[in-house]
């Protein structure tokens, strides 16, 4: 195995194009588990921790840019937490303090799990994923970036560099069902943004996180619409029927919270 540690984004993109098989590692909270248990043995890993361009977040012309290396702990801090409350709430539910200190938004996108807790809040915020390679930069709507369970639109020479989205202009929230408060993979999760339009996105209730929209006047019918849009399965964490029911309840509660 080889460890490549670029010190700039240009170097990272060059190394990725020269070593397309190199597996990026940011916080390592997904990848190290796989390596520790010998589930994968990559020929090379690309350590993104020393790439300053991937860190932090910024705001220009009203658009927020979250670096791929933004951690959950950072997303929970003001002033960002006030600009993206649902992402902050979702971040608070991730793992434990140790996991939130290391785990990144870029890593959640890289994993593209149907249960990824950053995905629903980013979806309701209309996020674009910024992908870069030596060939240039492109933006893909988050809904098109995740193409299946743990599958995404990244080309082999590309990295996620950032996510671009609009700050919350209306009330928004995030809710997650699980057996305890910490260390829980969502049985089902829901993000809601209640502006002129109602936008809900859920996790763990289909192969990919899905965005459901409706006019604000249709709030009464919205919980049913969200539940119908789901394609849940029975698994060790819960049944499909339970997930659909929980989505209905979460949407109702989220609406109560946001429209109050």
């Amino acid at each position: 195995m080889e460890v490549l540690t670029p010190r700039s984004l240009d170097e990272a993109l060059r190394l990725k194009s020269e070593n397309p098989q190199a597996v990026p590692i940011a916080g390592g909270t997904d990848l190290m588990v796989a390596i520790n248990f010998d589930r994968i043995r990559p020929n090379a890993v690309l350590n993104l921790n020393e790439v300053p361009e991937l860190r932090g977040w910024s705001r220009a012309n009203g658009t927020l840019r979250l670096g791929a290396g933004l951690t959950y702990a950072e997303a929970m801090r003001e002033p960002l937490a006030g600009l993206l409350p649902a992402l902050a709430e979702a971040s608070r539910t991730v793992g434990s303090p140790q996991i939130r200190n290391r785990g990144t938004i870029g890593g959640n996108l890289g994993t593209s799990s149907p249960a990824g807790d950053a995905l629903p809040p980013l979806l309701v915020a209309g996020a674009d994923v910024v992908l870069a390679s030596v060939r240039g930069e492109r933006r893909v709507a988050l809904g098109e970036f995740v193409v299946g369970p743990k599958r995404n639109a990244l080309a082999e020479d590309e990295l996620v560099t950032a996510v671009e989205l609009e700050p919350a202009s209306a009330a928004e929230t995030f809710m997650k069902v699980g057996p305890r408060n910490a260390m829980v993979i969502a049985v089902v999760s829901l993000a809601l943004r209640a502006g002129e339009e109602l936008r809900a996105a859920f996790g763990s209730a289909g192969p990919v996180p899905i965005l459901v929209r409706a006019p604000r006047d249709d709030a009464d019918a919205f919980p049913e619409r969200v539940a119908e849009a789901a394609a849940p399965i029975d698994d060790v964490r819960g049944t499909a029927a339970y997930r659909r029911h929980a989505l209905r309840v979460l949407t109702r509660r989220a609406l109560d919270r946001c429209l109050a």
Binding site: G28, M32, N47
Partner: peptide, 19 residues
């Protein structure tokens, strides 16, 4: 396995030694 990495609480099992 909790340790402080640059002053931040992390699980040492999830940090690549090379990182």
């Amino acid at each position: 396995c909790s340790v402080l990495l640059d002053g931040t609480l992390v699980c040492a099992c999830l940090v690549l030694a090379a990182q």
